[in-house]
Design a binder for these strands. Structure first.
Lengths: 108, 108
DNA sequence: AAAATACGCAACCAAAAAGTTGCACATGAA
DNA sequence: TTCATGTGCAACTTTTTGGTTGCGTATTTT
């Protein structure tokens, strides 16, 4: 399918500035704890926890418990699915444009 | 910038099943009127109008008035921006994984 | 001209999302 | 053991969002 399990849900998960910032931070590679991810934001830890649950819920993050802390890391596979979907849509539209142009040029 | 003007807003715009379906329909190439886009959905015309405004607001759609009707068409450029952004994040993470693996292998 | 089609705008509603506070519990450090 | 750190869970408040209804206006069509 185009976009895997639920493309809309994944886009919605990325469609929040806080969550997109988290994805950017975790894209650097290191799994980070909730408290660490909360630092530097105006949010409470609980608010951040909710955002992380949303991202985990659509498969974009994975949770790993280490001692007393709970670390989250990015899962790049779903992102690849979204990329493929956007490429498909973009290509479909470009093709349609080409067909339209050819049709117009065929008019005498 | 990663994702152009406002990547989060664009993801949010795509993060609704109705709007994602509209994007899919318009990806086929033909600009369609509001009434036409409303057909086959359980929504009212006004609800569809709001969704179209959201998509237009982030630059994903363009509005063209033809006679008494108002047609919407897809603009593929922003989609290309999002694709590039997702590819960047995905690549960053893969690179981080590579670095981590190399580091681990260097341990005696 | 009259009727039907296609919209736009504004007010209003209800459900979901974002965020907070309060409290209990587990783990690490002193 | 005692104290500090890091979480999880639940109830509650506040915005935002998705959706509707009602009404007025511009085009077609007949």
């Amino acid at each position: 399918m185009a976009g895997g399990p639920d493309a809309a849900a994944m886009f919605a998960a990325l469609g929040d500035p806080t969550r997109l910032a988290v994805v950017n931070r975790l894209a650097l590679g290191e799994a980070q704890s909730i408290s660490r991810l909360t630092e530097g934001t105006p949010l409470t830890r609980q608010a951040m926890t909710k955002h992380l649950k949303v991202l985990e819920g659509v498969g974009l993050l994975r949770q790993i418990k280490v001692g007393r802390e709970s670390r989250f890391a990015l899962d790049p596979a779903p992102l690849a699915d979204l990329t493929a979907y956007l490429e498909l849509v973009s290509r479909q539209w470009d093709d349609a444009l080409d067909r339209l142009r050819n049709f117009v040029e065929e008019q005498p």
